[in-house]
Design a protein around this nucleic acid. Structure first.
Lengths: 339, 339
DNA sequence: TCGAATCGTTAAACCGGTTTAATGACCTTA
DNA sequence: TAAGGTCATTAAACCGGTTTAACGATTCGA
């Protein structure tokens, strides 16, 4: 590859002049500019992004860190969220460096990435990444809530506790008294929040959410979300005697519906199904159409990107943003007169 | 941020020594190494990825260019493919720089990206990107087929013509004579290939595929794939008198199924539905379960990543890889005795 | 005991750009 | 005509690492 020096020599000017021709940061006479551009074209010269970034201390790249289990792949939620981040970044002239490796703890392997800022997904309790980026002085935004909570951290999240409260309220208001909750994996903060909200609404109705009615997804037992829904309902329906199922995602609900078909149980007449979902199109077109919650993962991503870019430009304080999730009633739930 | 110079000064050694401590490329005595590491920790020093990459001419980053229409977002196929790329890259220690902007034609805006190689998606006819990367000497792999075809280009693709031939053959063998083909957007090479295969198999049976039985997706008319399937069937079923629908994706098939329900048409008894799909879990759990083609977008992505990494290490020639797509028969198609 | 080999360390050049301070040519103005 | 002001251009320093060649100290073999 031709370098700026090659171009400068061939055009009979200095590096600085060539630099100015490309960056347009300083006026260059018409003749010189054209000569340089011609030589550049002839030699096939393109400025080197690395060298440029090193000099100006800016890469126009946003890091997106999505730690995933080594075997696993992205969920629809993650995939949509990433989509949202990319769209927003593209719009503002940024690119996205995606990373799905679990973060190393050896600082020798932890280099200062070629990014201007970072978006962190799937925060764990006491996530060591938070301290690290803070210390390195790299602007970052969290998707999810920091645990323990910290006001000085920018983050975007759904109102998860609220969501499950609403969903529970909807079911209880419609006469359901026994509900199976197919929660997501137990080590995620969102899982905790959702159970909290559901417990609360049960208490509000003078009831209590029984432990055996809450299940957690695990990769060990289930190949995927749909499997989780199918197997869990097949194994528990006769035993636990519930009239409604709250599924983690639309995919889980898909498995629940299949199990219902295989068990000869009518939905929604005999069993109501509701999902804490994020794929509106799928939910709208299932049979029956799925009552579900719109999480708007893409909005979450876009907002995170937007906050980060603002933060990098230095004109914004840290803040916490809640993206409202809302219940969309379709056809998969029924009123149940109490026995 | 502390630099290597700060560490060197504070530890009373030279830059080169600090560099060696971190890269482990040269032996350093135990005492010196420990002293350097301690100082580094104290100062919060992390090596600068940019500077390092500039010096060693290697970034361990793979570019993934997915040009999308400015308004649009990724399809499930793209999303899965990206997932495959990321998984394979992660496994081999690479990261992924994602870019969804349509490529600029002004070379002044086209810099030499901080990547060791590039994966190109959604190739157009005479795609200018191909020549450009070739000229720049950056290794690249195409997902899809180059048009015009060129043996010196590495690429990964499905056997699209073959797929639609197989699908057509399956329907014709089962007695169908009138088939609606909901093809993807007309400007994509895959669209052309699929129609070609279908025409061929019709000819093989002494029939001909009629133009009005082939439709193309367009963003202008349909908000999404499911809409495309629903509206197309609602508008054409009574007029065109077909007994089977070939849908571009499972999402399109979802719309077709809903249209059938709304029209009071039984699937598969009165109407057979088949999808050129890639989401096995969704297809398996639809009602009825969807007969569809497994495109394995994730494999496509993984293979592309793998080829690229091989190519970057310099030990591999260009080659064309076909990922076999195969028809998976489930429950959405029926045998039709000819009238 | 001397010369060679091994070892850890360093100074300086290098990667490919940007930027600052200085330079010289040209044009005003007093 | 000399002093002052623009203007395009340049040489050199800089960004933060890696690497090469040289070096002094120690160990080895004869």
């Amino acid at each position: 590859m031709a370098t700026i020096d090659d171009v400068a020599r061939q055009a009979g000017v200095s590096k600085g002049t060539v630099s100015s021709v490309f960056s347009k940061k300083r006026p260059i006479s018409r003749q010189v500019s054209e000569r340089v551009l011609n030589v550049a074209k002839e030699l096939g010269y393109y400025p080197n992004h690395l060298a440029r970034s090193l000099a100006i201390k800016k890469t126009m790249i946003v890091g997106l860190r999505v730690p995933l289990p080594s075997d696993g792949c992205m969920s629809a939620f993650e995939s949509q969220l990433i989509n949202g981040v990319i769209m927003e970044c593209s719009k503002q002239g940024y690119r996205v460096l995606l990373d799905t490796l679990p973060e190393q703890d050896d600082p020798r392997l932890f280099s200062q990435d070629p990014v201007d800022g970072v978006i962190l997904l799937n925060p764990r309790k006491n996530d060591p990444r938070i301290g690290r980026y803070g210390q390195m002085g790299i602007p970052f935004v969290l998707v999810g809530r920091p645990d323990p909570f910290d006001e000085s951290i920018s983050c975007v999240d759904n109102n998860n506790t609220d969501v499950s409260y609403q969903v529970g309220d909807y079911l209880l208001r419609n006469g359901h008294r026994s509900v199976l909750f197919l929660n997501s994996a137990s080590d995620m903060t969102v899982s905790y929040d959702r159970k909290l909200g559901l417990s609360e609404v049960f208490r509000h109705y003078g009831l209590s959410l029984r432990e055996e009615h809450v299940m957690y997804f695990t990769r060990k037992l289930f190949a995927n979300g749909t499997d989780y829904g199918y197997i869990s309902v097949m194994n528990s329906y006769r035993k636990l005697n519930y009239t409604a199922v709250i599924a983690d995602t639309d995919r889980v609900a898909l498995g629940v519906l299949r199990a219902a078909r295989d068990l000869g149980v009518e939905v929604p007449e005999e069993l109501s199904v509701i999902a804490l979902s994020n794929d509106a199109i799928l939910a709208q077109n299932m049979n029956p159409r799925l009552t579900s919650v719109e999480l708007s993962a893409d909005l979450l991503g876009a907002e995170a990107a937007n906050m980060l870019i603002e933060k990098m430009s230095g004109m914004s304080d840290n803040r916490q943003v809640i993206i409202d999730a809302k219940l969309v009633v379709r056809e998969s739930c029924s009123f149940r007169s109490n026995p």
